[in-house]
């Protein structure tokens, strides 16, 4: 008997090794399992902020102190039920809303400059992070973030709740020449953002794209045709610096968190 006919493992393994096709199929099945188990449920389970874009949600199971499930429109802004009906009337605490045109333009610059490589937007439920950054982040807060920006590294501090912490003027100075404000900073100077005007066309197109997303689109009731048509006016003469500052100031104050409520279960 030649060595090639001897089976050193099992009959099945031997069969797999002899046939490229069987090996291919077995491998393709084996490597598919983990991803399916971990990813697919996230599109169906509650507390993952998955919306149909028409006001329907998989829902939350967050319970208030009386044990009642917190209704979704307390967490995600719903113009139909909120006392503030338009993007311009929206107030912090009304719930998660999509970005305004200038903020959206700023977010594009934020991604372009790779800011997420050093600044996370995901606060974890620890005492020190609460003291340093604020309430831990919840899924709904990034539901409109197509291309999520949670980040993986804090070379600089987390910015998930940066909105309102500093003045626009502080941000302008800091973004231009960070070491003028924070001498130990290792952040690059971004003074050149002041020399570039916001790309109006790109921003309005982005708004239209956001309403077409298959998962968690911005509802067309919010990014209505009129709202998108009015965007160029809001972006007129704005610099990329203005846009980034508007984006940073919009972060983290959308949801009114109630003391003592566990938003993680």
């Amino acid at each position: 008997m030649s060595d090639h006919d001897h089976i050193y493992s099992t009959k099945f393994q031997d069969k797999v090794e002899r046939s490229t096709l069987v090996m291919f199929i077995m491998t393709a099945l084996t490597v598919a399992v983990g991803g399916i188990v971990e990813i697919v449920p996230l599109f169906y389970l509650p507390n993952t902020a998955m919306s149909g874009g028409d006001g329907t949600f998989n829902g939350t199971q967050h319970k208030d102190l009386q044990g009642n499930v917190i209704p979704m429109d307390k967490i995600v802004w719903n113009p139909a039920t909120s006392e503030h009906k338009s993007m311009d009337d929206w107030q912090p605490g009304d719930g998660v809303r999509p970005y305004k045109p200038l903020e959206l333009a700023g977010r594009q610059v934020f991604i372009r400059e790779g800011c997420f490589l050093c600044h996370s937007q995901m606060i974890r439920p620890f005492r020190d992070e609460k003291d340093r950054y604020g309430h831990y982040s919840i899924a709904e807060e990034s539901m409109y973030d197509h291309t999520y920006q949670w980040g993986s590294k804090r070379t600089g501090p987390d910015i998930a709740r940066l909105g309102g912490k500093y003045s626009d003027e502080w941000h302008r100075k800091h973004l231009k020449y960070p070491r003028d404000v924070v001498p130990e900073s290792v952040m690059p100077n971004f003074f050149f953002l002041e020399n570039a005007k916001v790309d109006v066309e790109k921003t309005t197109k982005t708004m239209a794209v956001m309403t077409k997303m298959p998962f968690n689109p911005v509802p067309k009731t919010i990014y209505s045709a009129e709202y998108i048509a009015a965007a160029p006016e809001a972006l007129k003469d704005k610099t990329e610096m203005d846009a980034v500052i508007a984006f940073l100031q919009s972060l983290g104050n959308h949801v009114k968190f109630e003391e003592g409520v566990n938003y993680r279960d």
Partner: peptide, 8 residues
């Protein structure tokens, strides 16, 4: 922009 957002 990614067709997925946030958690997913």
């Amino acid at each position: 922009y990614s067709i997925y957002s946030g958690v997913q």
